[in-house]
Design a binder for these strands. Structure first.
Lengths: 192, 192
DNA sequence: TTGATTCTGAAATAAACGTTTCAGAATCAA
DNA sequence: TTGATTCTGAAACGTTTATTTCAGAATCAA
């Protein structure tokens, strides 16, 4: 038998993720990555793969974490309406909480248009997220807490769309109050 | 006296803009640019400047064109409500009309967070656009064509936010019908 | 035509890029 | 301790990067 891997891959992936998060795919060099991951170049290539493979693992990890977190939070509320309001308010808070961009959105606009492997992964992730949101929206509609003149799916997409817009606005103007206001308008709009 | 510049700068800037549009800032090399612009390396550096300066000129040109176009279109309608509906419908059509991303949005997510020169320019552009939209929204409100329980500015931001979300959705799922539907929901929401 | 000036093309620069290689240290069952 | 195996660090690979340099062609007033 021989030596076995001495580092925790998930841990290293998370460190790499933070670099991609901050700088984006193209602006991140292998040097940046090995520095942040505290891993050897060879170990990186041997155990994880090249830059693109590492990136795929990062966005996978990013989504899994985000999805787990949101599911956990939602499970705390018995009312679908309350769960939605909290989900939206949380997102608005999250957007203004970090000045770096959002890895997901950055990836969609920077990489996805020209990289179908990334696009497929992001598209799948997005669908999973929207399906989840849709199920809560449906519950709210069934409970009569929400206007159901539009389908649950459309409403779910509508909500997710807003998040991207908020991040854009926050990157440009860095005004937390405006983002909070936007989230309130959204909540008002979908529940009237 | 000596020789004078033999190429039309604006024309060259436009060609460069298309490259940045397609590939984004970081993925575009000077080689890509001189190839597309059909200009010499030295001429580029002597008359326009380095990559970053060229990029700044490109996003300036991009915004000026977009702004001119939208103003021209809006001027055709005497009703503010009609103008807004057309502006929104147009944007939805534009989003699904080209498969490459949107230079503006790409720049905001890829470059703006880490490049304050770019961020300031984009932020200024965005403000100008929103101010313009706000003035139309205000007209629609004054004419009683639009619900005025929210300020014109908030409504203008709300509309612009949606555009970014649509582009994201289209990059991921390439479903024109969904984008059209989203624009209809927006129109329904802001005019009820 | 002259002469000062400016544009142009190609080559050169030095640094950074992603990736590979490989000798040697580390590990662990036998 | 041996021997097979695997991880590690550093160096090297060949490209590609953005930018500069410079000799010569092109221009135009005088």
């Amino acid at each position: 038998m021989a030596r076995c891997v001495e580092f925790n891959e998930v841990e290293k992936i998370e460190k790499a993720m933070n670099v991609f998060w901050e700088k984006g795919y193209n602006a991140t060099s292998i040097q940046d990555l090995v520095d942040a991951m505290q891993i050897n170049r060879s170990s990186l290539y041997n155990t994880i793969g090249d830059k693109h493979q590492l990136f795929m693992k990062c966005i996978g990890n990013y989504f899994d974490n985000a999805m787990m977190e949101v599911k956990e939070k939602v499970s705390k509320y018995s009312s679908a309406k309350e769960a939605l309001i909290n989900l939206i308010t949380d997102k608005a808070g999250w957007i203004v909480s970090c000045d770096k961009g959002c890895l997901g959105m950055k990836t969609i606009f920077e990489i996805a248009p020209d990289d179908c492997q990334v696009r497929n992964q992001m598209s799948k992730n997005n669908e999973v997220y929207i399906d989840f949101l849709k199920s809560i929206v449906q519950k709210a509609m069934d409970a009569g807490e929400m206007d159901d003149s539009e389908s649950a799916e459309i409403m779910a997409e509508y909500i997710v769309n807003s998040f991207t817009g908020w991040k854009q606005a926050y990157i440009l103007h860095q005004n937390p109050i405006k983002i909070k206001k936007m989230s309130e308008v959204l909540i008002k709009n979908i529940f009237k």
